[in-house]
């Protein structure tokens, strides 16, 4: 994907740009607001990664102007502020996701890629598939190799999120946010426990393991896309 990074801290910018480039993305970095706005308004990018505090034109104002100019490129805010009010302000200004500093690179990568997919994805799908796993969103039913699997409502949501991001890494915090609406990490193995339970329900002796744990990053459903 083509990613525009608007970040004034040189160290952070280099860290993010290197990390994204190493994972096959094309990154252009800008260190101040107005030039960032012009670059973003050109429409040449798939994702904008915007720091909340950039010189001359702060991140919030920048995104608000972009949205006013009908530039709908997905925006991921980076911030050192990190707290909920700031997150709400960021989303209200037209941001699509919010990542507090300091963050781990896999987290940023997973979120940027998820944003990119979300922009391309159609929401009209009623059946999600991955290998021999099938989820019917209308009937709220799941089956593997044609045999039904009983899931609790929360497990269904968890699997749905994994399916929508099949082939890509989703992080623990992304799961906590989307499935349980928790915006903090309880620090214990809560997600691991849910995941192993889901694995148990999806397991079929004849079929391959569907959920892979990616060390230091998160989980992936199915083979890498």
């Amino acid at each position: 994907m083509r990613i525009l990074l608007i970040e004034d801290d040189a160290d952070t910018a280099a860290y993010v740009a290197d990390g994204l480039t190493a994972n096959g993305h094309a990154v252009e970095a800008v260190d101040e607001g107005p030039r960032g706005f012009l670059a973003a308004a050109s429409g040449a990018f798939d994702i904008l990664v915007v720091d909340r505090m950039v010189p001359k034109l702060d991140g919030l104002a920048l995104v608000r102007r972009l949205r006013a100019a009908e530039v709908e490129t997905p925006v991921l805010f980076l911030t050192a502020l990190g707290e909920m009010e700031d997150r709400v302000a960021g989303l209200e200004a037209g941001g699509d996701d919010y990542l507090p500093k300091p963050f781990a690179l896999p987290e940023l990568l997973a979120r940027v890629e998820a944003l990119g997919r979300r922009a391309r994805q159609s929401t009209a799908e009623t059946v999600l598939r991955c290998g021999d796993l099938e989820m019917d969103l209308l009937r709220r039913s799941v089956s593997r190799a044609g045999r039904p699997i009983e899931l609790m409502p929360r497990e269904f949501q968890l699997l749905e999120y994994l399916l929508r991001n099949a082939g890509h890494v989703v992080t623990k915090t992304m799961l906590l946010e989307t499935v349980w609406h928790l915006r903090f990490d309880p620090n214990t193995n809560v997600v691991e426990a849910h995941m192993s339970r889901l694995r148990g329900k999806l397991h079929r002796p004849a079929s391959a393991e569907l959920i892979t744990t990616i060390r230091g990053a998160g989980y992936r459903l199915g083979p890498p896309a």
């Binding site: 609406h181 928790l182 309880p186 193995n189």
Partner: peptide, 25 residues
Amino acid sequence: RGFARVDLSALVGTVADVFQASAEE
């Protein structure tokens, strides 16, 4: 300033649920 109506029943249920699996382990 950011206070709003919160469905406490759902909130407590969700948080309990997130710990359920690891507790059962």
